[in-house]
Computed example of a mutant assay.
Amino acid sequence: MLSRLILSLALLTHLTAVAQTPVSTSGITTHDPSTLQKEAGRYWYFSTGHGIQAVSSTDLQTWKLEKPVFERGTWPNWIDSTVRGFKGHFWAPDCIRMNGKYYLYYSCSTFGSPVSAIGVATSPTLDPQSPDYRWTDAGMVVRSKTRDDFNAIDPGLMRDTDGRVYLVYGSFHGGIGAAELDTLTGKVKAGTTVGRVAGGRQSDWEAPALHREGNYYYLFVNNGFCCKGLNSTYYIVVGRSTSPLGPFVDREGRDLTAGGGTLVLRTTGPYIGPGHVGVLREGKQTLASIHYYDADDKGRSKIAIRRLKFRNGWPVLE
């Protein structure tokens, strides 16, 4: 009996360790990674940094820093008159392919300010070595001015099975907003109103990501506080809906606009403050990229890639 108990505990410990180990990590400092993209056998992600940091890999194991989207010290002119004090440090980009091009959405703001904007740039390819590589800015998508607005940072994109594309975004302040995009312009569809799908009342909701699985749409969102290294309290929650524009409710039926949210992932072992979900279907598996603060490396922020699975209709990150 004792031997069986010891064996069971050992097996449980092993399974827990497996569940806590990402598919991939990278030593490159990474914050707010975009949804992974795959082009011509190479994976790409973009993240917070001067000019928008770009990183690539052929195997999800060995990662390489690429040239930034915008040369350091340069950025689209419209930002200067929209976000005073912006100095070229872009936040939390996300990327999606539409119309034979990559659309890269990026955030412009200053820390703690509600004066923010999300812009979009396009390129036929992600490969800087290609003669077709060229990022062309298409201007502002949404903006915010006061703490009552949806703070215009942290864009997340999702293409539905019918080809329609949706944007979720926001941080604290007015909560998380959602709207359908025009797939030709990449901007919010004419006549569309941005609706609140989570948070509000200055509460700690940010970094949204939208994903469809079967008949449900899942809204991943972060609670807690990022950007504090080992002291970061970020954790990921989720709600689901039968519509990409909500309402989203958690496992107990609580609306995410009223404080609901089912826990998906929190600090585990050396992986401090996980957050900023992006989802990529890769063959028969679904991968989720996140960032975390590495307790084994003085709290540096890094990317981790985990398997996304669904059990009883709710997501699990392994």
Rank of each mutant, 00 (worst) to 15 (best):
T233N: 01
K145Q: 13
L7A: 14
V23T: 14
S116D: 03
G214C: 03
H211F: 13
Y271F: 15
I28K: 04
G139D: 03
V18E: 14
W314L: 05
K228V: 10
P128D: 06
P244F: 08
Y271C: 00
D154I: 02
I28E: 06
V168A: 00
H211Q: 06
T257K: 11
R72A: 09
G51Q: 11
L9S: 03
L210C: 08
G261R: 04
R281N: 15
S107K: 05
D32T: 05
F150W: 04
A209T: 12
K87S: 12
N312A: 12
P76V: 00
V188E: 02
M98H: 07
D182Y: 10
A54C: 12
L36N: 06
V115N: 11
S243W: 04
D296K: 13
S109T: 13
S243M: 04
C95N: 09
R240D: 06
Q53H: 11
K67H: 06
L104E: 04
R159W: 01
G163Q: 04
I96P: 02
T262A: 13
A17I: 07
P315Y: 07
L287P: 15
A207D: 09
K284N: 15
P247V: 07
R196P: 00
I305K: 01
N222E: 09
G156F: 04
L317H: 07
D127A: 07
M1K: 11
R196K: 13
K38V: 12
A258V: 12
L5F: 12
L317P: 02
D127M: 03
L11C: 12
P76W: 00
A121N: 08
D149Y: 00
R164A: 09
R84G: 15
F70K: 05
G224N: 10
Y102R: 03
R240F: 07
L263I: 14
E180D: 02
K189G: 04
F86D: 10
D80A: 13
R307E: 13
Y217H: 03
V197K: 09
L126A: 11
I118F: 01
L210T: 06
W63E: 07
C226S: 13
R212V: 09
